[in-house]
Design a protein around this nucleic acid. Structure first.
Lengths: 114, 114
DNA sequence: TGGGCATATCAACATCTGGTAATATATGTG
DNA sequence: CACATATATTACCAGATGTTGATATGCCCA
């Protein structure tokens, strides 16, 4: 059955997961798992460019996945919800078992280095 | 810090989440949450085309997110790991709180219908 | 063994997404 | 008030992704 409500929920969920499905955003989220960081610190931790980080942070903030707090001229970012960390943790666990399969899954390659 | 190992793990995790980040795959996974289904049943449940479903199933199977079992000329699919369902459940919960933000997040639009 | 359905595969196309670069804004500081 | 630093924004480009359609393979039933 494919009700309109269900379809909408599915689209939203897909959109939510897309927040996690990019290496850059995932790096940011993983960095924030340890402790809140400023943008500059995130840039240093991830090696991404500053505009790139800012762009992704904006997206993550709009989606409620991270929260920001301006302190002086720095902006501190932290995970916006405990369940974000929980999902990341579950993914780590799951990955421990299915990593090999995913690694070898080249059907839709994901810029996986060799 | 961006060690090679960490980078690899991040890539893998991104790849894992990408498995969930597509409405078609998510529809399939959600359909399988209720009970195992054959390809034909999945096609009927999701409204997707058969080749499309088959393609995504192949990807999901390779990644270990679903498991398949051939029974006669039908192939029965089911979720490959309890944590897959757990992640989907957590996402539902999280979505209940941040849905509005995600819905309005058009920064990287995600074919979200109005 | 032949017919028919269930499933998988392949190639091509339209679309979207993420990165970079240049630039703008704002907040303290001297 | 001018300057330097921190963060955000915009536009554009390259690459990857998902869908479609036609087609191939394989398993059951008569």
């Amino acid at each position: 059955m494919l009700t309109a409500a269900r379809a909408g929920a599915t689209l939203l969920k897909a959109k939510l997961f897309r927040g996690f499905s990019d290496p850059s955003r995932l790096s940011i989220l993983d960095a924030l798992r340890a402790s809140p960081l400023t943008v500059t610190e995130i840039v240093a931790a991830t090696g991404l460019s500053q505009p790139n980080v800012s762009n992704h942070l904006g997206c993550l903030r709009d989606c409620g996945l991270v929260a920001s707090e301006q302190r002086g001229r720095h902006v501190h970012y932290r995970l916006g919800d405990a369940r974000v960390a929980a999902i990341l943790g579950l993914a780590d666990e799951l990955l421990a078992d299915v990593a090999k399969g995913i690694y070898e899954c080249t059907r839709y390659s994901a810029s996986a280095e060799a």
